[in-house]
Simulated assay, not measured.
Amino acid sequence: MSLDLQLEMLDERGYVLLPDVLEPLRIALLRCAIDDLQPIHWDYQGLLEHYKCVFNRNPLWLPFLDLPPLIALAEAALGADCHVIGQTAWRSHPGYPGMALHLDHLPMQLPDWLSERGDFTQPPQILTAQLYLSDIDHHIGPTWIVPGSHRAARPPQAGEQHWQGREAQPVLCKAGDALVFRSDVWHSGGANCTQSRARDMLQVHYGRRMVAQKFSPYLNWRFNPQVLEVATPRQRRLLGEHEEAEYD
């Protein structure tokens, strides 16, 4: 799929699925790395495990900040000076009940007369790339997305499952595939109804340069020197080492 087509799909649908971004060896490496994670600050464990800013814990997470298909799309959509605003590891266990339909961040709420037309798209400010480390079927709990719902320019209301006649669609895919979506598209996480399969996922969140990097635990944040020592120039830029600009 060409980069132009990927950008067109982000504009029209609010998301694009990229196949075969990770090979089996890297999938196995990441699943083992999630096994070793421990909660820090706002992280938590239970039926859903959630770990923020994993790039700062071990250099092994660094190469997943700028995987070629993902960084090409992020830079094309958000600018060549975009950066990372998060890298989060998830594991949902059997019995996890799922997550309701929501959006992650709305850059600007539009007046009703404009959003109801459904033909205006705000430039994206934040993209999330979900790297699936498990095969995703209906039983393990797919991500659900309402195509085009980013044009609503508002969050879904309680119980709302469609926008302009479009209902939420499940993203069924293979381990190693990556789903890239805008922060303002409506999406949800499905329930894990399996008996024994965990749903593992690594997210990378990209933002335009003017989107602040808010790394937990904030005031106590320190970059891991072992990570910075081995980071490439592009990875250091993604972590915030920018050239001088107007607001620096």
Rank of each mutant, 00 (worst) to 15 (best):
S2P: 06
Q6E: 07
Q6A: 12
M9T: 12
L10I: 05
E12D: 09
R13T: 04
G14S: 11
Y15R: 00
L17N: 01
D20H: 11
D20V: 11
L22C: 01
L25V: 13
A28G: 14
L29D: 14
L30C: 10
R31Q: 11
R31K: 15
C32N: 01
L37E: 11
P39K: 06
D43C: 09
Y44Q: 13
L47N: 13
L47E: 04
L48Q: 15
K52N: 11
V54F: 00
N56G: 03
R57W: 00
L60K: 07
W61P: 03
L62N: 09
P63I: 05
L65S: 03
L65I: 13
L65Q: 02
P69H: 07
P69T: 03
P69Y: 09
I71K: 06
A72S: 13
A74M: 09
A74Q: 00
L78A: 00
A80I: 08
A80V: 08
D81S: 10
H83R: 06
I85A: 11
I85E: 10
T88R: 11
W90M: 09
R91W: 05
S92A: 12
G98N: 09
M99F: 07
L101N: 06
H102L: 10
L103P: 01
P107A: 08
Q109D: 10
L114D: 02
E116V: 09
T121N: 15
Q122H: 11
P124T: 08
I126K: 14
Q130W: 06
Q130G: 05
Y132F: 15
Y132M: 10
S134E: 09
I136W: 03
H138D: 14
G141R: 09
G141E: 08
G141P: 01
G141H: 11
P142H: 02
W144L: 15
W144Y: 12
I145F: 11
P147M: 07
G148R: 12
H150A: 04
R151D: 05
R151Q: 14
P156K: 10
Q157T: 02
G159I: 07
Q164T: 02
E167W: 10
E167Y: 02
A168G: 03
K174T: 12
D177N: 13
A178G: 09
V180Y: 08
F181C: 00
F181Q: 12
D184G: 01
V185E: 03
V185Y: 02
S188N: 00
G189C: 02
G189R: 08
T194N: 02
Q195S: 12
Q195G: 06
S196W: 11
S196E: 15
A198D: 15
R199T: 07
R199Q: 08
M201E: 10
L202Q: 05
V204R: 12
Y206V: 09
G207R: 01
G207F: 13
R209N: 06
R209Q: 13
Q213R: 10
F215H: 14
P217A: 15
Y218R: 06
L219H: 10
R222I: 05
N224A: 12
Q226E: 15
A231V: 03
R234K: 09
Q235S: 07
R237T: 13
L238K: 05
L239E: 01
L239K: 01
L239T: 11
G240R: 10
E241R: 03
E241H: 00
E244P: 00
D248K: 00
D248V: 05
